[in-house]
Design a protein around this nucleic acid. Structure first.
Lengths: 226, 226
DNA sequence: TAAAACAAAACGAACGTTCGGTTTGTTTTT
DNA sequence: AAAAACAAACCGAACGTTCGTTTTGTTTTA
């Protein structure tokens, strides 16, 4: 009850933003009316316009909020980037990306709303910023690994981009688009296999590298189909 | 001028569908009005409703049209699947997928419209159908390759799914979302590198497999950096 | 008591859809 | 082969509703 004006105002703004996020991510921008947002937020239409200049400003604020969350240095994925241990950090990266997609399902759908209903510049800046951060984070690490022969013949920068994009899209398909199964295999199973492919490739190795276990020939170790 | 009634009717339907595809893919379903569609198609609003029961029926027809195109046995990608030469067919698959995304940019965006503005069941059936076709197409081939030791320790079915999904999404990002560059590298460069990663992995090989140089079937080793 | 927060009513514009009427091509009758 | 009858293709005004936004007025807080 005894809330200050600022606190009440901020609470109302949050309620409006949350309601808008819920609706925008489920039915798109144009298909969501200000009346719907107001009703779900439990405020009047007039009050919505007291806090936001117009409908699009609400959308913009939601995008900004997601963007800020992605740039947070404390975000696990950003910690992984700072360590720059590719390809050893692939498991860490995978679970960090899974966490992002899990916690920001609606915001990720918002990005696709932006792609469709606006001209989609946010997804462009997203990929371009990601590219810059890869360069920053991994350039030194890769130069050193190259000198020490710890990396193969491929371009590790392309590899890390490939991996992150795949993981991001994989979890997006699973959590946001609702395609939970993949060839009858579970999510973790597929991600682990993807990481192994990245590290060792699908073609057999004649050297000592035995990715899964040791010398088994039939590969019955992980209980796949007969 | 002397067109039959059926021909005229079909021409009008096509014009309406093309206009609707253009608009839906650029601004979404709800943001596109029937008036807009009619104007771009060069017909009256009433005529639109003569050919289609309602606005959503137009959308549905567009999705169906795309779906039929994907199931066409003559589609290059389906020919690649029938050959079932993974991982040798990766270059062929890549260019077949690139061709699909190129020729169906608008329809692919339509799928994302469906994800946002409807409940996105089409993308689910898309992925599930893809999974079934992978099983059909590659099951025998992989069993044989496994017996002959031509494949490594990984699950090839996961690998082929991984590859196709990545390629599809890669070209979608590039052509539909407008992110043409990737870490300053061109599209072909990145795809080639992705294929090499799939085959050989990022970790160095001590055996005779030298990924970058010869062993290619057609011998066209795309010239890259030393 | 002034300003901020909120609610309700009202605005014109645009929406999807309907409908009566006109044009145009085809079939039937003469 | 011309005329009459028919049906499909087509048009555009109009309907009822809903949209984003504004205006006006009331309550709450400092």
């Amino acid at each position: 009850m005894g809330q200050t004006q600022r606190a009440k105002s901020l609470a109302a703004e949050t309620k409006i933003l949350d309601a808008a996020l819920h609706l925008f991510s489920r039915q798109g921008f144009q298909a969501t009316s200000v009346r719907e947002i107001a009703e779900l937020a439990g405020v009047s239409v007039g009050n919505v316009y007291h806090h936001f200049g117009n409908k699009e400003a609400i959308f913009q604020r939601l995008i900004d909020r997601y963007w800020e969350a992605l740039l947070d240095p404390d975000l696990p994925l950003n910690q992984v980037f700072r360590q720059a241990q590719f390809p050893d950090d692939l498991e860490l990266a995978a679970s960090a990306i899974e966490q992002i997609v899990d916690q920001h399902q609606e915001e990720i759908l918002l990005i696709y709303v932006d792609v469709i209903e606006f001209r989609g510049e946010h997804i462009r800046t997203f990929y371009e910023t990601m590219a810059d951060r890869f360069q920053e984070a991994y350039a030194d690490s890769f130069a050193k690994a190259k000198r020490e022969g710890r990396l193969g013949d491929i371009d590790p920068m392309v590899a890390v981009m490939t991996a992150c994009r795949w993981l991001f899209y994989f979890f997006t398909v699973e959590k946001c688009f609702g395609v939970p199964m993949h060839l009858g295999r579970g999510s973790k199973e597929v991600v682990d296999e993807f990481i192994r492919i990245l590290r060792y490739g699908v073609l057999p190795r004649d050297d000592g590298h035995r990715p899964r276990v040791a010398t088994d020939k039939d590969g019955t170790t992980s209980g796949r189909r007969a």
